[in-house]
Design a protein around this nucleic acid. Structure first.
Lengths: 271, 271
DNA sequence: CAGCGCATTTGGTATTTACAACATAATTGC
DNA sequence: GCAATTATGTTGTAAATACCAAATGCGCTG
């Protein structure tokens, strides 16, 4: 489709530059490449449409992490919900506890929450985004070994579960691809094993799922409902699921929308 | 010193926002906080001076990673040199090899290099910046466990070295705080142990150091010169050090400046 | 409460960028 | 080589931003 060297080379080099500096100005790129600002502007718009960078006023900014270029539209759609869930989940954590946090978008949101606070936690995770989110806090951070999965931004595999098995936590927060009366489901086999280990190695386990996960039957059953102690979600689960949850003695926390003075609100409005 | 809530709160919230989105516009922040754009502009300038964010034309962009807020001025000063070193070191890697990469700024530069290429490497590292840099490549990535050190952006400790000891690599690239006739030195005890393990578990070890590390005697001796096979640096080492290196049979690679058509050049000019 | 220092606002102007419509140049396919 | 398509450059105008300096407001201290 595209075989022209000119434009493609510019695009490639623009992206390359953005790996080193988070922001480039249109004017700079234009003089550098010897083309008009209009051309660069068009380049940036094109790359932005492809989701490879974000536009800014005078230029472009790099997408955070080389991670998750192909974010599901479904994921995108539930940003607010997942923030609300993270907000509610953060209340379940008490100072000084040992907390295991699964890899995932909702759990990463939770980590941001916990990272801003000042509780002296010990956090064990297999996800770098989670570690990064908590980096500035006072918490102690233990990262798992394993094969790095760029898409998930975390490590998985036998090494990961073996390592996790050495620890014992007060709380574990896990995510999932689906939640049915049968139990918790996930699409990723390696991730499923990690989740099972997290459940096994913690006193209490909370599942963080938004409503789109309700009644989703996917590849693999991670664990039955009875394996977890509570779920944190954004909407009340449907009747049949609610019955199963009650029978399995799983408490249900439904998160309200984040408050207006919340810093995350700003992000939403900006986006 | 600062007890006023007004300004400080804005600053904190601006930084918070930048954790979620890579870019904010001045106008957006102004309307959000109910203050003038001038005020936000000053906020941004102040935060920029503190190195907490980068200014852009219409706003600000987040510093890449929550990592290394306090970068040494010395580190800052030798950016070009370290890029050149990374450029030269990347030539030492052949497709298909198993490569261990130490945590550090120079080694992270190397990872960027290797990440852009298409050699199918297996990379073992204790540094997330390294992993992140390579994420988009075809390489397999194995991350070590351990205590996460936000300042270094990597994991260290007994867990880390134990884990590393299970592997065997063709090449290892390590950094250091100092290099003298006596050997390789480092300020961080945990990091020193990791480096020793990297050396022990690889067929060949290259030390990546810029000229400011020459003749720097710091806390701990990591290993004698004879432990490594080569160094990659930006300037020829001083006479006495050169003699020691030759006696220890250490090859010296002196990197030239990066070529003009190199994508990184652009970054430098922008900065 | 007067005075001081700091943060913020206000107002005005110079620059820079965005946007759109059109002209020109380059490339491709036939 | 010609026509169609695409890429790039030009121009003009509106909007957004940057910069500067002075004025105002506000909190604090004595």
């Amino acid at each position: 489709m595209t075989r022209k060297p000119r434009k493609d080379e510019r695009h490639a080099r623009i992206l390359e530059v953005l790996r080193y500096t988070p922001h480039v100005r249109i004017a700079t790129l234009a003089t550098r490449f010897g083309v008009t600002t209009e051309t660069i502007r068009r380049d940036l718009d094109a790359l932005s449409d492809q989701g490879l960078l974000d536009r800014a006023h005078g230029g472009a900014v790099a997408r955070p992490m080389g991670i998750q270029p192909p974010i599901d539209e479904r994921e995108q759609a539930t940003v607010d919900e997942r923030r609300a869930i993270a907000h509610a989940a953060a209340r379940l954590v008490e100072p000084g506890q040992v907390v295991m946090i699964d890899a995932g978008s909702t759990t990463t949101q939770l980590a941001w929450r916990l990272g801003t606070g000042d509780r002296a936690l010990t956090v064990i995770t297999n996800s770098y985004p989670v570690a990064s989110a908590m980096a500035s806090s006072t918490s102690r951070l233990i990262l798992c070994p394993g094969d790095f999965n760029a898409r998930e931004g975390g490590v998985f595999g036998q090494d990961t579960t073996d390592y996790l098995a050495r620890f014992h936590a007060n709380l574990a927060f896990i995510g999932a691809s689906g939640l049915t009366g049968e139990g918790i489901l996930d699409v990723n086999r390696d991730a499923a094993w990690v989740k099972r280990t997290l459940i096994a190695r913690s006193e209490r386990t909370y599942l963080l799922v938004d409503h789109t996960k309700f009644a989703q039957t996917v590849l693999e059953l991670v664990a039955p409902l009875s394996a977890i102690d509570g779920i944190v979600t954004d909407r009340p689960p449907p009747e049949s699921l609610a019955r199963h949850l009650q029978r399995a003695d799983v408490t249900v926390h439904v998160a309200g929308p984040v408050t207006a003075d919340d810093p995350q609100r700003l992000t939403e409005e900006i986006a």
